[in-house]
Structure formats: C-alpha cells, structure tokens
Design a protein around this nucleic acid. Structure first.
Lengths: 334, 334
DNA sequence: CTGAAAGCGCTTACAG
DNA sequence: CTGAAAGCGCTTACAG
C-alpha cells in the first residue's frame, strides 16, 4: 500500500481503506488510489495482512492420498466450495494410517490453516490433544465417529457392510470372504471388517469366513491376487465383499481370466460406486458413497463457522446399496 | 518467540536463534529455550516469518480438476515431493479452459506462492504478461509448449496420437473417428485433434474422418453416447481413437451392450493407460502417460530453483504406446 | 473523511 | 555468544 499511497498522493491509511473498501473515502481519492494500484500492478501481501488482522483465510485438507478416486473427488468438491468463499486450501497427504499424522497436521496449522478437513477417526493421541487444547476447528469425513471431539460428515460404514452381508445371506450364501483395504489406523476398514464378522456371529453360521487385507496401491492388482488367494485357499467361498470398487474390479477381471462365472461361481460386491461400476461386465453391485457431498458439506461447515460462527455438526449421509448384477444365488455345489 | 524468550529468561533474539538453529548459542540457554517452547506448545507464526524473511515456502498447483485420475495422480506426486522438501502446496482447480485463469492464479501469488505448477499452454493473455513481467517461476505440465515463456514437463501429445493413427492405418483401417475431450483453451486436445486430421491428409485418404468432442465430466457416459453417435451417424467407421481411457471404457461398454464386437466391429484405442486399462475386456490398447513422473519432476524443478537457484527446464517424457487387444484389423465389409 | 502512528510476530544486522 | 532495536507490509484505533 505504501507505494500505491505515494503514487496516488494520499496517506497509506487512505490507500488501505479504499483497497479494502473498509470505509467511505472521497470519490476522487478513491479513483486515484485505484488508478495507482492498477498502474503499479499492486498485489497485496497476504502475509502482512494475515499478521495484522490475524486471519489467513486458509483451510487445510488432510487426506490419505489423492491417488484414489474417492479422495480426489471429495477434495475436488471441497476445494471448489471453499474457493468460492474466498478461501484457499492447503493440502497434505498422510497415507491411510491415522495414528501418526501429528506432524503434518501441526505444520498446516503453523502455515496458518484456520480450520481443517480430516478423514475418519484420528488415532493419533498427541494430535487429539493438540486439537482439543488449541480448540482447532476441524471436521472429520468419511466415517461417523461417535464421542469424537470433532464432528463427522460421513456415513455409517458398519451399517453399509451389514446391509451387503445380509443381502448375500438372504441370497443363500453361507461362506463369505472380504477383501479389505488397510485396517491399521483406519476406522472405516475396521468398521467394515467388524460388520462382516459380526454378521457371521449373529447369524450363528458355523463356517469360517475369511478376511484378506490388501493395500490400496495398485488396487486392481491387489483385487486380482486376493481373488486368486481366495479361490485356491478357500474354494468353498461363494461370495466376496470388496471394500472398494477397484478391488472388486480386479477380482472380477481375474474371475474372467480364470473362467469363473460371476455371479455364477462367485458373487462379488464392491464399494464406492465409482463411475465405472455400472459399466463393468456384469454391472457391479456396490455401495454408493457420497464423496463430493462430503467434501462440499465439510467446506460449507468450515466456512460457515469461520465467517458466521455457525457451529459445525455431525452429518450422517446415506450410502445407498446399488443392486446390480455381480451378486446372485450361490452356486449349486455348496 | 517473545513468550518463549520470556519463559526461558533470554532475549527474543536468542530465542529466535535457537528455534531456527541459525547460529551457535550457549548450550544451557539452548535447552532452556527448547524447554520453554515445549512447555508453551510454541508454534511459530508463518505469516510473521514470511513477512520478515520474504519467503513463504508455499508453491501453487493450478490444475483443471482433481476429479480426473490423471490430474489426481500428478498432483499427488507433486505434493509428496514438494512436502518432502518442507514446502506446502496451495491448490486451485480452474477447469479445462486455460484462457480465463488469470484471477485464480493471481490469487495464489497473492497468497504467497513462490512458484507454480501449471497445466499445458496458457492461453490467457493477461496471465502470460503477468508471469513475464513479474518473472514468476512456473513450469507447465502435460504438453510440451514450444516458444513458451516457461518450460514444459510433458510429452508430445501430437506424436502420440500420430503413432496411434499410423498403427491403425497399418492395420488397414481407412475410416476413423476420434472421441476428443474439450478442446477450448486446451492445447493437449487441440494437438491430438490436429494429429488425427493431419494423418488423414498426409495419407491422402479421401474418406472423411470424424471428430466428436465430449466433456470429461461423466466421461464414461460421454464415451458411451459418443460411440452410439458414431455407430448411427457414421456407420462406415471401423476404428475409434479416444482421448482418455474413461471415454474408451464407456465406448467399449456400449459396444458390449450393442453386441458390437471389439475389435471385430470397432477397433478402439484409449489414452492414459489408467490402472484399469489392462484389465478391461478385452484389454485396452492405449497410450501410457507418465502422470506421477510429471508431478514429481515439476516439484523437483521448482524446489531446486527455490532452494538452489537451479534453472527450470523443459523435459520431454515418453508416452508409450501400449498395444493390447482392442485394436485389430478392420471388419471385412469395408 | 483523512492522516500519523502503533503494532501484529518474526529475523537479523549491529554493537557490545 | 548475546541483546536492543529496526523493520518486513499491512490495518486500525485515535485524533483531528
């Protein structure tokens, strides 16, 4: 502003006032300031402004990875919404294990993030304390975390899988397997595995059910290799619940390669309802997950809090079960 | 630092020095400062630091969208690399049309971005001037832009498509179609369309070739509808070049639905070699594009410049043609 | 309505 | 090695 003020022949206080339209200024001075600013190509210094007004208009997004359709979509929507309100997003990826993410999150706060979008339950004790003590405004997404210090914007991961398993049970399946993503420090996966195992116990099924855990990296390959493992080591299994559509896709492709009919030999269910799910052959039965919605709601809540002090709150969204063609009755020979 | 200095009983200058390990300080004072900092849970104020040292360690990523596997992967790698060097990324999505992105980019600079990763040729005249006059450090990715004021880290989009078309020509195809992405303000698409049309002209083919342009939103659906359009309006076409694997996937799925054999009836080629390409049925012939590599190299170059003054420079990567099973000889009746 | 001045939280010559 | 002081570029009481 100093340079602009000088060029316009006004005080720097006045220049600042017109540049921020913070109070009424003589029309003549106003235009002189604008002209000077335009001529000089003036760009305000956000750091100086932030230091002075103690506001950065920066929000942070802390996610496992962007290289995963779900998170990419969620962050895309988050970024769009937040930007529309004049905020900018600082982004950092931390992997799927939420038990050691203190440092990256702290660095975002140090950078000036005024609020955070996190994913799932935070298993990092120092981070929990940090958020509590500093009263950092944050929402977690993806799962609903009861009794958490911060609200959740997500869906019931447990219930969604229960619904899937119950559906398979009703179709007559008795021996199931789950291809899960990484469970360490990942409450979504933990909830899903629990739902899977609980269903078996509650239905008093005597057969053992199998959970095979895989990385989400190269999920297609992992799905394929998991399918092979199940097929050879647990040939009695008739239905497979996959915790992502990519895993399911890989499993499905592998079935095709092994000439195993779906759903004739294996019933397969995916998770997420990615864009390709409905176009798979056969169309994939899966769970539709509101990724963009979560990002947008998280964004609106954080901005609503920062701009108008509106409290953030838990929102439980629906994850709709999409019945398509990859799950059917179990094969005869069992 | 002031509070820490007071708690440690040293001057703020000393506190600052130990916190930044900028010069040797008496061991005793050192530990007193660290203790005080730990007890107070001191977090430095980046804005104040930035204002003082005129460095933010912020870099900006300006991309069309995150909701697209290619960009998500590229940004994921970019973010990882940049973070490993102590930088943080500011991210903004601007859509595919690069002719009106001045404002968002300017806002990133205002936010303190010290360098930028852009995508493709910048068709925004004010932005070009802005970058030139302010000598903003930036690299563009995805395509190679000759004579651009900033270096490119990408591959030859024109050549890649030429290679595909030549391959189809050699297989005996004479009537081709291309399903393109949005071309407005998008030099990648423009280069590909040009490559497609040039091939026809240079080979003196008398048949008309068709380009149908589609959005990248809901690319699967767009691919499917484009396939239908080609099938009904240009039934003589025997090979289709798709400018993304998602478009190709949609087209392939639609062929299946219409009982059109691939490659028997239509040969189809994709673009990007997304993870699912090799697992499609039949496996998709496509062009492998080094998304993560671009992001990582862009990151390394920007950091290298900022840290060590190393000049940024154009890097032309390879886009490897992946011959798989969706392209074959043209059907008999033509 | 306008301007001179203080101060946001840092770092770094400068002097000792 | 250590400290007092200046100053980064802003905004905003405060006084006029």
């Amino acid at each position: 502003v100093t340079a602009v003020a000088k060029a316009a022949g006004v005080s720097i206080a006045t220049a600042s006032r017109v540049l921020n339209s913070s109070s009424t200024v003589n029309a003549d001075m106003r235009s002189r300031v604008f002209e000077a600013a335009a001529k000089l190509g003036y760009i305000p210094n956000s750091a100086a402004k932030a230091l002075r007004i103690k506001r950065t208009r920066l929000v942070g997004a802390v996610i496992p990875t962007l290289d995963h359709a779900f998170f990419a979509r969620m962050v895309d929507a988050f970024q769009e919404t937040v930007t529309a309100s004049g905020y900018t997003v600082l982004i950092i990826t931390v992997g799927f294990d939420s038990s050691r993410i203190f440092e990256p999150v702290r660095s975002l706060i140090e950078r000036g993030a005024e609020a955070l979008m996190l994913v799932g339950r935070i298993d990092d004790e120092p981070l929990q304390r940090f958020i509590r003590e500093r009263e950092i405004v944050a929402v977690s997404t993806y799962s609903i975390v009861p009794d958490a210090p911060i609200p959740s914007i997500g869906f019931d991961n447990y219930k969604a899988i229960r619904q899937v398993v119950d559906y398979l049970l009703r179709l007559g399946h008795k021996r199931l397997a789950m291809i899960a993503g990484p469970t360490k420090g990942n409450d979504r996966q933990q909830a899903r595995v629990k739902a899977f195992l609980d269903a078996r116990n509650e239905h008093r099924i005597r057969h053992s059910w199998h959970v095979v855990e895989r990385s989400y990296l190269d999920a297609l390959d992992e799905g394929a290799s998991a399918l092979r493992e199940i097929h050879t080591r647990h040939p009695e299994v008739t239905a497979i619940v996959c915790n992502s559509d990519s895993l399911a896709f890989g499993a499905l492709a592998e079935c095709k390669r092994l000439a195993l009919d779906v759903p004739g030999h294996f019933s397969i269910v995916g998770h997420d309802d990615q864009d390709f799910a409905a176009r798979l052959d056969p169309p994939l039965t899966t769970i539709a997950v509101p990724a963009r919605q979560m990002g947008a709601i998280a964004a609106r809540q954080l901005v609503g809090y920062l701009e108008r002090g509106e409290p953030t709150r838990t929102v439980c969204l629906d994850a709709e079960f999409q019945v398509r063609a990859t799950a059917g009755k179990p094969r005869r020979d069992l």
